[in-house]
Design a protein around this nucleic acid. Structure first.
Lengths: 217, 217
DNA sequence: CGCGCACTTGACTGATTAGTCAAGATGCTA
DNA sequence: TAGCATCTTGACTAATCAGTCAAGTGCGCG
């Protein structure tokens, strides 16, 4: 094209091509899944050309890894802020649980649908990406685990007890995320905090019941 | 090829090309996901040719729909047998929960890995398939719901109470399935029955506790 | 025997895929 | 202004994609 050339391209000004490509990749892959999104589609969405893509990223798999990193960066910052924030351990746990709905609410307003966890769009398709996603899931697990442990410490429950509750709540979170994505709805997330808190309460009340051993689960 | 021609092909004898194609499609899609599996790959796995594929199925999307049907056919039969089988309502619920592990155990021995729910390999990629999968999920929901309702009826709990417990258990099942698939491990399924039964017990014991209202969740 | 139908074969199309590359444009620094 | 690194451009490749089709091939039935 002779009419326009140089660095200034179609995308929003002030945002580098590299960044626009990453944002487009995140948005498209999250919605359609990694295998259903082509490099061409990412370039078109970002207003960039193929050569620019491969100047910024060595491969399609590489931008997926960067996407996972970027998403977890934000999530981790927010969850760490909650963990280090004010209030009792129980209140911080409650805010952690609230975050799942708030996060999907923001994604809904940003992207126009409820995407669920990003790793639901990756599955096991790219080994390297699966490795990074697993590491991030583990980091999130540790955050939630310590939040639940802390909220139970003051009730005199030990860590093993807390870890079983953590497992149950994490699986409920996974299930809720799938349901939210498949149904494109925030509804499954609406009761998540209350459900988790009730589960904690139930487990605690059962703990004092002698008919349940030290391990209620 | 002049050395071999006609109807008898590479696949197991006595099984129609149509059937071999379907089985290959199920196996490959379940492992790699719909978008990652090509028609050529299905044909190669089934020992059939492209033309035979399109003689048997009108499109790649069509064989996916058939695959979903086939899988649910077997699952439904097994779950219906449990629902109509002997024992108390509680025992039948327990067998229903056990089935998730048994089913994945069989799939592990048949396919060499733990695949989780088939719909985890489809996601939202083919509208028609998503519709069928949603309908099957709903059928399964009704089976589990009535199993839980029946197991609570004798405890004097009403259906609304049972339906909240159903929701919680279904989300745990989803979470467990994801974890099993991502980790290629039966371990998350190992505690599923005990977890569900404890949850039911906990909810019941809390129901008699006046500090919890009629709706424990 | 021979007709017809169900199925198989494999080459083919046109679109799309991930990735390459050489030539250019730009902007920073000297 | 001149030089240089960085970024952009768009055409290109070779592979793969879903889907088509005309020419078989063999089996059952009359």
């Amino acid at each position: 094209m002779a009419s326009r050339a140089g660095k200034i391209t179609d995308g929003q000004p002030g945002i580098s091509t590299r960044e626009r490509l990453l944002r487009s990749a995140i948005s498209l892959i999250w919605r359609h899944g990694y295998n259903a999104v082509s490099v061409d589609a990412i370039c078109a969405d970002a207003g960039a050309h193929k050569g620019s893509f491969y100047h910024a990223y060595p491969s399609k798999a590489a931008i997926l890894s960067k996407a996972i990193d970027r998403i977890w960066e934000r999530d981790r910052a927010e969850l760490a802020a909650i963990a280090e924030g004010p209030g009792t351990a129980l209140q911080r746990l409650e805010r952690h649980m609230d975050w799942f709905l708030e996060n999907q609410q923001r994604l809904l307003s940003e992207q126009g649908y409820v995407p669920g966890h990003f790793h639901l769009a990756i599955d096991i398709q790219v080994p390297d990406a699966a490795r990074i996603a697993a590491a991030n899931r583990d980091e999130h697990h540790k955050l939630l685990q310590s939040a639940i442990r802390a909220s139970l410490l003051e009730e005199g429950a030990d860590d093993a007890f807390a870890d079983f509750l953590t497992m149950a709540i994490e699986r409920i979170i996974s299930g809720v995320m799938i349901e939210a994505r498949l149904g494109n709805s925030l509804a499954p997330l609406q009761d998540l905090t209350a459900l988790a808190m009730k589960l904690r309460q139930l487990a605690l009340s059962a703990k004092s019941d002698p008919s349940f051993a030290a391990r209620p689960f």
